[in-house]
């Protein structure tokens, strides 16, 4: 053929990143299933998802942390927008936002010396012991990703029995 054939990579390679989106949806039954189903049907990865009512009771807000590359993330936003029950998709990743997560860590605490050490760690980090058992403590912490990660690492050597976390919630800063 008399045309010049060159290969142009139309799909640029992107790196996987974490994106935070805030999605306003109708507060109706089945909406969570629509959102979760969209992710599974299209093979997108949810890192965490937190959902609750907003200032308007007919509207819920989902904070979703997505593991994706830039190209897939664009599709995630568009597909979420396409859902009839989605009112607005707000991408927080680029701008200024505050995020928090609540975590419970049940840590092994049997020997007296160890129990003291854990109490010290908890005090120094500003976390709180919310349940004192014979063999374990339950520690509560809320904060951003770094704060929570740091606490987990500090407690890990003592033996973490169980972790329960809410997933991230986030709000855009007013500027």
């Amino acid at each position: 053929m008399n045309y010049e054939h060159k290969t142009m990579n139309r799909n640029k390679e992107f790196n996987m990143e974490k994106f935070v989106i805030s999605v306003l949806v109708e507060n109706k039954f089945g909406v969570l299933a629509r959102v979760a189903g969209l992710f599974s049907a299209r093979g997108y990865n949810i890192n965490s998802l937190a959902v609750g009512e907003t200032e308007a009771p007919e509207v819920s807000r989902m904070t979703i942390v997505v593991d994706a590359d830039e190209r897939i993330f664009e599709q995630v936003k568009k597909q979420l927008n396409k859902l009839i029950d989605t009112i607005r998709v707000q991408d927080l990743t680029g701008g200024e936002y505050v995020d928090r997560e609540l975590i419970f860590i049940k840590v092994k605490a049997e020997k007296i010396g160890i129990r003291e050490k854990i109490v010290k760690i908890v005090d120094s980090t500003g976390a709180e012991i919310v349940d004192i058992g014979k063999k374990s403590f339950t520690v509560e912490e809320s904060g951003d990703e770094h704060r929570i990660k740091a606490l987990i690492e500090l407690l890990r050597p003592y033996g973490i029995l169980e972790i329960v976390r809410t997933g991230k919630i986030a709000i855009q800063c007013d500027n």
């Binding site: 010049e4 054939h5 290969t7 990579n9 799909n11 190209r71 568009k78 927008n81």
Partner: peptide
């Protein structure tokens, strides 16, 4: 897909934003 229309700029008219790119 990598070899599709290798010399072309692409215009896309569509009502569904999720079809674009």
């Amino acid at each position: 897909i990598d070899d599709f229309a290798p010399n072309a700029s692409i215009v896309h008219i569509d009502i569904d934003p999720s079809s674009v790119s």
